[in-house]
Computed example of a mutant assay.
Amino acid sequence: MTKSPTQTLALTGLTLRVQNLERQLAFYRDLLGLEVIRQQGPQTDLALPGRQFTLTLLHEPTAPLRPQPTLGLYHFALLLPSRADLAAIFRRLVEARYPHFQGASDHGVSEALYLADPEGNGLELYRDRPRPEWPFRGDRLAMVTKALDLEALLSEARNSRPLEAQTTLGHLHLHVRDLDEAQAFFEGLGLALMQGDYPGARFLAADGYHHHIGINLWARGRTAPPGATGLLGYRIAIRNQTPKTLTDPGGAQVQIVDSSGFPPIHPVQ
């Protein structure tokens, strides 16, 4: 596997407001394998040994739990380097009898496991297929949703293990109020529409990736109570970009940083 020398964009951070910090640490640290790299006041930063992204948990014990689905995070997705790595973390979840597993899909471009963390935040664990195998309809990407053979996946992992050290924050998928408004916001950051014919959803990316950002209408405009748990913000590294902080259409803070000195992250297989 080689890495792209021309990558211009990467997701490098995510912040969640959490109600029960110890329960969330039991999931992200003890089960998935992220390490606490900084703890100051209510803020805990976690990362994998490869330091490809940072997950920040902001502890607010009085925060109401965000109802699902509501505008904001649908899921964030962690991209594992290989199918064997995906199989190994899946076996770890199975052996732990993790109760919030939600399903699995073959999207043509990727194979994905879906679960929720203990407070209901959606999480996708996935591996990409080689780009020459991605399905297209004409010149447009044609992602699909088919059943994933979980027994076959599990058979690839004799032993379980936590997330592989070089796992990245592959994409974010957001519940939005208006697809056109959200698409315009992300196009303003340099992303391009990759697929727009998926029912109720669109997918945007840079560098020819299948998607860095997904947007959908599936929450039907429902909103969470003020101060609820869930997504507060995320960080995007963009090559030759002036650092700034924006607010996305859902109210999340988007920190833009210059990626020029960063190593390339997304694998090209």
Rank of each mutant, 00 (worst) to 15 (best):
T242S: 07
T12F: 03
Q19C: 13
V36Y: 05
I89C: 03
L65T: 15
S82G: 03
A88F: 00
R202W: 05
H173I: 02
Q24E: 15
F136Y: 13
K244Q: 12
E35Q: 15
L65C: 08
R140K: 09
L217V: 08
A152W: 00
Q19A: 12
V254N: 01
R131E: 15
S160R: 02
L123N: 08
E133K: 02
Q43K: 10
A77D: 04
T70H: 15
T167F: 08
G108Q: 01
D197I: 03
R127F: 13
L174N: 10
L125G: 05
G214T: 05
E124G: 09
L34S: 04
G33M: 07
V94A: 12
A182M: 04
P81F: 08
G227S: 05
H59Q: 11
S259I: 00
P225I: 11
L79M: 11
R97I: 03
A205C: 05
N159M: 01
A63Y: 08
T70D: 12
F27D: 12
E35H: 13
F101A: 04
P118T: 06
L93S: 06
D197M: 00
N121D: 15
I236N: 02
R127L: 00
P99G: 03
D30G: 08
T167M: 09
G108K: 00
L179C: 07
L32R: 05
L16Y: 15
F203Y: 12
A152D: 09
E119C: 14
M194G: 10
P64H: 10
D106V: 00
Q39A: 14
G227R: 07
T167N: 06
S82K: 02
E119R: 14
H175L: 10
T12I: 08
I265R: 09
K244N: 04
T62S: 12
G72I: 06
L11Y: 07
A104C: 00
E181W: 09
G50M: 10
H171K: 05
R66P: 09
Q7T: 14
G33R: 06
A157W: 00
L189I: 03
P249Q: 04
A206H: 02
F185S: 06
L25Q: 13
H171C: 06
Q43Y: 14
Q7E: 11
T6F: 11
Q253D: 11
N121G: 12
Q241G: 07
P264V: 03
R235F: 03
L153I: 01
L125A: 12
Q255N: 00
G250T: 15
P67M: 11
R97C: 10
E22S: 11
G190Y: 03
P67L: 11
E124I: 01
P130G: 12
A96R: 04
G122Q: 14
T15S: 14
W134H: 05
N240A: 13
K244W: 00
A152C: 01
I215F: 11
A116Y: 10
R137E: 14
E22C: 06
R66Y: 14
T167H: 06
V254W: 08
P42S: 07
L78R: 09
P263S: 10
H107D: 07
R127C: 14
S259M: 02
Q269C: 03
L78A: 08
R220N: 14
P99L: 08
A84R: 04
G170Q: 09
K146R: 13
L71G: 09
V144P: 04
L78C: 09
L48D: 12
E133L: 11
Q183A: 07
L21H: 13
A205G: 05
S82P: 02
L189P: 02
L11R: 01
